[in-house]
Computed example of a mutant assay.
Amino acid sequence: MQEDWKNKHIVFFDGECGVCNFWVQWILERDKKDAFLFASLQSGFGQKFLSERGLETKVFNTLYLWKPDQYYLVKSRAVIQIANLLGGIYTLLNIGKILPAFTGDVFYDMVSRNRMKLSAQKCFLPDQHQKKKFIEV
């Protein structure tokens, strides 16, 4: 495992979902500040994260963003924070913070319920540099 994972923002995602894998690739391509690492919720690391917080360990329809020893965010708040950390034009998503989390989560949940229909199950194969950004323990 990467030695500096505690200094990164870790994105937990459904490793079997084509939509989730698309967004992981999207973040990877824009992560110019090297701020993120990734772990599937099905991995040992993902399962440990979920169980330590008393979260669901069998249903993987929620995106989590975790900054160790600081915070973890879910659903729309995680998406907004990821955009903020990417910087640039993506920080425009900060406008979503003026809405209650529930409002953004309604849209998030609608996409989540239909995500398997939205994308064919495509296999994502990271390149050598990208592989270093995944926590698989």
Rank of each mutant, 00 (worst) to 15 (best):
L37A: 02
D109P: 11
M110Y: 14
L92I: 07
N94F: 10
L85K: 15
G87A: 13
K67E: 11
L55V: 04
L73I: 00
W26R: 11
T62A: 10
F102T: 13
Q121M: 08
Q25G: 14
I95N: 05
V79D: 01
L118T: 12
D69N: 15
Y64L: 03
L28A: 10
H9Y: 15
C20G: 05
E56F: 04
F38M: 01
R30M: 10
E29R: 10
Y72G: 00
I10A: 00
G96L: 06
I95G: 15
N84E: 14
L86E: 02
L55N: 02
A120F: 13
Q42M: 01
N21G: 12
K6E: 04
F12L: 13
N84Q: 15
S51H: 10
Q42I: 10
I135A: 02
L125E: 09
K117W: 11
E136K: 12
I10M: 04
F12Y: 11
T103E: 05
C20I: 12
Y64A: 05
F22L: 09
W66Q: 08
Y71D: 09
A39R: 02
W5I: 09
P68W: 01
F13Q: 01
P126D: 07
C20L: 08
K132A: 15
V106M: 12
M1H: 14
A39E: 07
E3F: 08
Y71F: 07
N7I: 00
V24N: 01
I10D: 02
P126F: 13
M1G: 13
N21K: 13
Q47D: 08
L63E: 03
G15H: 05
F49R: 02
G104K: 00
D31F: 05
E29Q: 06
A120C: 07
F22A: 09
D34P: 01
Q81S: 00
D31Y: 00
K131S: 04
V24F: 07
G15W: 04
H9F: 12
Q121H: 06
D14I: 00
H129R: 11
L50A: 02
F36K: 01
R53F: 13
Q128N: 05
K8F: 07
L93Q: 07
F13H: 02
I80C: 06
L93K: 03
L85P: 11
E29S: 15
F107V: 12
Y72A: 05
A120Y: 11
W66L: 06
V74Y: 12
D34K: 04
T91E: 05
K75N: 09
M116C: 12
S112H: 02
I27L: 13
K131F: 06
K97L: 14
F38P: 01
D109N: 14
Y64V: 02
I27P: 15
S51R: 02
